[in-house]
Amino acid sequence: MNPRLVDLYQQQGRLLERITTQRQSLAVQWAPVQRAVYGADAVMQLLQRSVSYLRSHPLVVATVVTALVILKPRRAWVWSQRVLFVWRRWRRLQNWVSLYRLWL
């Protein structure tokens, strides 16, 4: 076989090994950045879903703004906590009832 061709194949093998090593090193170094990007992506998706929900339910926005205007912001905060508590209990009751129906 041609010695020049043998040298080229050996050089190609060394380059492929070097590329593999560099890719593995880059994957390890890139992991923290990738986690941060995934976190930012999750936040952006949540924000987009929230905006979409608020655009499709303008009555909710109007109710919140009206409550803030009528009530003082501190009292509105207290009432929002109460409403959230009641809403969570309602959802839990709905889940319980749906599970109970499955058992019947």
Results as ranks from 00 to 15, higher is better:
34 Q>R: 13
5 L>W: 13
51 V>M: 09
33 V>W: 12
51 V>F: 15
7 D>I: 06
41 D>N: 14
19 I>F: 06
101 R>N: 07
55 R>K: 02
97 V>C: 07
84 L>W: 13
8 L>Y: 15
81 Q>G: 11
89 R>M: 11
32 P>M: 06
45 Q>S: 07
36 A>P: 01
103 W>L: 10
1 M>I: 09
19 I>E: 00
54 L>E: 01
32 P>D: 00
23 R>M: 03
64 V>Q: 05
17 E>C: 02
103 W>S: 07
24 Q>F: 03
41 D>A: 15
98 S>C: 12
87 W>I: 11
33 V>P: 04
92 R>Q: 03
103 W>R: 11
5 L>S: 09
87 W>P: 04
5 L>Q: 10
13 G>I: 08
89 R>A: 08
83 V>N: 02
56 S>F: 10
3 P>D: 00
6 V>I: 12
81 Q>L: 14
96 W>M: 07
33 V>M: 07
16 L>Q: 01
63 T>A: 15
25 S>D: 02
86 V>L: 08
50 S>E: 00
79 W>D: 00
20 T>G: 15
92 R>H: 08
13 G>V: 07
39 G>S: 08
91 R>W: 14
46 L>E: 05
21 T>C: 13
101 R>V: 10
22 Q>F: 13
74 R>V: 08
55 R>F: 05
104 L>K: 12
95 N>W: 15
25 S>Y: 04
24 Q>D: 02
43 V>C: 13
75 R>T: 00
54 L>A: 09
80 S>H: 07
20 T>K: 15
44 M>N: 07
4 R>F: 02
79 W>H: 02
75 R>C: 00
50 S>G: 02
10 Q>V: 04
29 Q>E: 05
41 D>E: 10
3 P>Y: 04
20 T>D: 10
81 Q>V: 06
92 R>M: 05
61 V>M: 09
102 L>A: 09
9 Y>M: 06
8 L>S: 10
88 R>K: 12
28 V>R: 07
18 R>S: 06
100 Y>D: 04
37 V>L: 10
30 W>N: 01
21 T>F: 15
54 L>P: 06
25 S>G: 11
53 Y>S: 00
81 Q>M: 10
43 V>F: 14
80 S>D: 00
68 L>M: 05
98 S>Y: 14
68 L>V: 03
4 R>P: 00
44 M>K: 12
7 D>P: 06
100 Y>P: 02
46 L>N: 11
52 S>I: 03
55 R>V: 00
77 W>C: 01
16 L>P: 01
53 Y>W: 09
9 Y>N: 04
56 S>D: 03
82 R>K: 04
20 T>I: 07
1 M>H: 11
8 L>M: 15
45 Q>N: 07
77 W>T: 02
62 A>W: 06
15 L>H: 10
100 Y>E: 01
59 L>H: 07
78 V>Q: 04
90 W>N: 05
44 M>R: 08
97 V>R: 13
92 R>T: 12
93 L>H: 14
69 V>P: 03
77 W>K: 05
77 W>F: 04
65 V>H: 07
101 R>M: 09
94 Q>L: 14
33 V>I: 12
38 Y>G: 08
70 I>R: 09
